[in-house]
Each structure stands twice: as C-alpha cells, then as structure tokens.
Amino acid sequence: MIAVEFAKQIRRVRTWVVAAICVIIPFLIGLGFELNHNGNGGGGGDAGGGLNFVTHQSGIVVGIFALLFSSVLLIPIVFAIFAGEPIASEARWGSLRYLLIRPVTRPRVLGSKLGVSVVLAVVVALLIPITGTIVGIAFFGLHPIETFGVASSSTTGLLPSHIVTFSIGGALGRLLLATAYTLFEMLSVVGIATLVGVATENVLAAMASGIGLYIVSAILDALSGLSRIHPLLPVHYLQSWTNLFVPGTSLEGMVHGVISAAIWGVVPLLLAFRIFQRKDILC
C-alpha cells in the first residue's frame, strides 16, 4: 500500500515543481548575500528572528537563513500541498472509490497516503537548508560561525554582548536540530490540511486551509492586543529555534513549540481518521 502510494506521488509533476522551488529559493538567498558582499563589504546584524551573526558571508549561515526565511511561508506551503492533496486528488480523479473497494481498511489507506505525503514533504523541505548550506559553502567556504551572545539583564532585557564562536560541527548540529524542529512544527499544517482534504475532498480547500491557518495565526500573533492567546497559535513558536544560535537565551520556547505542534497536529489528524472511517464515498 505504501509502495503503491509512493509510486503514484513520485511521478507527479507537482512533486518535482515544488522540489525545484525548494532548491532555487536558497540558491537565491545565497546569491543575495554574495551580491551584498560585493557591494558593501558585507556585515552581520539582525536580519530577522533575533539572529545576530557577525557576518552573513559564511557557508552555514546561508543555510540557517534559508531555513528562517522559508519557515514562514514556503515550508508550510510545501506541507499543505503534500498533506492536503492525496485523498482529495483521488476523489477528483474518481479513483478513490476503487482504492476503497480493495480489501484494505480505510485507516490503512489514509495512513499510507499520509505517511508517504509527509515523507515526501520532509525530503523536499530538507532541500532548503541543505541547498542553502551547500550554496553558502560554495560562495563563502566552510568556517566556524561567529555570533553575538546575549547577557540577560532584569532591567533592559536581552542585550548583545560578547562574540561566541560555534565550531563547524556544532553549527551544523544546531542547524540540523533547528531543521528538525521546524519540520515538526509543520504537524499543525499537516493536521489541518489532511482534515479539510478528507472532509471536503477538495484539493484547493485543503491546501488553502493549511496555509491559511499559518497566515491568519501569523497576523493574530503580530497583534500585541491579543498577546494572551499568542501561546495558543501554531506559528507562535515557529522560530523559537533561533535561540539555538543566540547563546545566553532560553530554549523554553522550543519545548512549548513541540507541545503546541503535537496538539495542533494530533487532534485534527484523529478527527480526519474518524471522518474518513465513517464517510460515505460518493465521488
């Protein structure tokens, strides 16, 4: 069943288009840093997410920024496409009913489709930091990275203070952890897109709801008046991993993020399986 599903998805044009985009974007980021380097000699500073590197002209840093820039929209889109589509596509093609008159239980059908989709989405999304790092190394070489650490102070908050150096291995390890964390956060997108895909059998609705969840909650997360509900939003902890690269900050956000993503993922997924099990297949 899993092999069958894999055979169906791997030959799809959309799989390869999305993969191509995930290679091109980090390449452009690397190129941007390179052009910046040629223009004004380059410099570090806060380019977003609280990251504060001494210089962006460093191999691994490009990978880190590729992950950071993509995590807001590109990676959620990738997961929404892969998770929302499988059931809805089969329904549209009229092949879903033929899949379900085989001696295979419905949870297994949905589980196989979901499993293959998530694996493909992870592989495609991994292209982003991997390409970013490779492009970065090609442009700037492979060096240890330097960043400003912060010292916490009860009166002024966190302030950049001293420079900290991560070894190549340490930096790559942290990037790997950051990537794994970001992909885990996508559970919420997978959950919602799967749920809507199963419930409506509509490809566009499924993808849009996965991405929409992110856009809406990003907007809500930006409204300081709603700060009390911010911890409940699926995007709130999305970039908490940046603290991995800011010595002196707490990683508590990542723990909250894992819990939040697990809940945002598991609840809709359970609901999706339940709906699918009881659903009348009329398409």
Partner: peptide
C-alpha cells in the same frame, strides 16, 4: 479480494499509464 467492480464510471490516476494504473490497483490489494 474476490470481488471485481466498476462503480459509476471508471476512475484512474491521470498521470500514469493504463497498465500502471491496473498494476497499482492490484497491488493495493496486497
């Protein structure tokens, strides 16, 4: 597994060949 069926018109994965569709349909049954 002992039943063959055609329900309200055929339905196939459009980007695969007719033969491949039949192979995958069959293999999904284990």
């Amino acid at each position: 597994s002992r039943v063959g069926a055609l329900v309200e018109g055929p339905g196939f994965v459009p980007h695969l060949s007719g033969r491949r569709n039949l192979e995958l349909f069959w293999r999904a049954g284990g």
